[in-house]
Design a binder for these strands. Sequence first.
DNA 1: AGAGTCTGAAAAGGAGGTTTGTCAGATTGC
DNA 2: GCAATCTGACAAACCTCCTTTTCAGACTCT
Lengths: 211, 211
Amino acid sequence: MAGGPTGTYGGRSAQERRAERRERFLRAALDQFGDRPGYRAASVTALCEAAGLSTRQFYEEFRNLEDVLAQLHLVVNDWTEQAVLAALGDSAGLAFEARIRAVLRAYVAAATDDPRRLRIAFVEIIGVSAALERQRLVRRSRWVELILAEARAAAERGEAAERDYRIAATAFIGAVNGLLHDWTAGQFEASMEQVVDELVALLLGVVRPPA
Amino acid sequence: MAGGPTGTYGGRSAQERRAERRERFLRAALDQFGDRPGYRAASVTALCEAAGLSTRQFYEEFRNLEDVLAQLHLVVNDWTEQAVLAALGDSAGLAFEARIRAVLRAYVAAATDDPRRLRIAFVEIIGVSAALERQRLVRRSRWVELILAEARAAAERGEAAERDYRIAATAFIGAVNGLLHDWTAGQFEASMEQVVDELVALLLGVVRPPA
DNA sequence: AGAGTCTGAAAAGGAGGTTTGTCAGATTGC
DNA sequence: GCAATCTGACAAACCTCCTTTTCAGACTCT
């Protein structure tokens, strides 16, 4: 009874070491899953090799590959969500259209900033499993609620028509995602400002009462 | 030198037999791929069993499972495309908004008619391989061109503003698909007419010049 | 210095899938 | 009726991957 089971090793605590390995796995997964051929062709072995860690350590941090993808999806989603929340705060004083534009620009910039993140969120996550599908829909519903809250506030200020925007908000999210996906896939040439302009126009068209 | 290599067997020609087996494989694939757990969990063996045919025959008709998925995707796409083209023809005389509504209703009805087809087109096809991604983008571009042609015609009749609708059309397609997916996934309760109404409003908002 | 713990590599066990080859029996044209 | 062909089932060969376990060496604390 002498050895020190305090958990520190290499100068770091057990927690620090675990966190760092988790980080390394997630970073490697962003590379492996976010680029062709993506998650479907990925393997635990390859991921570990890319992360410079062993399969043993992998199974100490994750249950399986899908677990990694799920966590990565949350991280990626948080990233864009933070960007939008920040933009919402910054643009609090602006007029409706300018505010919408600022927020949408922030989202588009954050989402397209790294192609791998975009691919994780829009492609790799789709149709993997029932659990991931649930997680994705839960996350999406947060976006819907965010839009609904803003629409309510805008309606109170008289900047938007008063009605139930749930379906419209869902459709709009689909428009944003579809547009970003096709844009980054090179389906059409456009500047970010053009893309944002179209999205602003689309949103204004929905929010404003019909002529 | 006596046996008759004419190809007829069981009363059918070789072509007919091949076509029928192809049909049976595709029908079984619609079941296997279009429902959870879907294409990712599918196997040649299970597909053959469901089709009541053998793996040997499978490899005479298809290169591999992805080949089946690709062909199925084309079939599913043709289905909705035919529905829309028919609606376009039928509504040739109607006013702009009524026409848009008729066509969108036809699309929504065709797309949601069979959940398995919808899932193939919107979920299972995503992120499988570079080849399938190409095929999907090619098919999507046909929808964009269709919308662009209609927008040009509408602009000539003075029913829509004259401008480049390519980006807007892409966004709109994303909206339609996203909305249908979330709707059929049970994210919100709505009648088909409500869904169509929202899509019509969205499209009119885009097409009409800003107030 | 030494008991006790943590690390990372390697491998073994096990499961599942794809694709090709074989073969007995059914069916054809002559 | 008979040779030639087609059919559908079966299984063998092969491969890849996941997951757990083992183990020698590095490290920490007393």
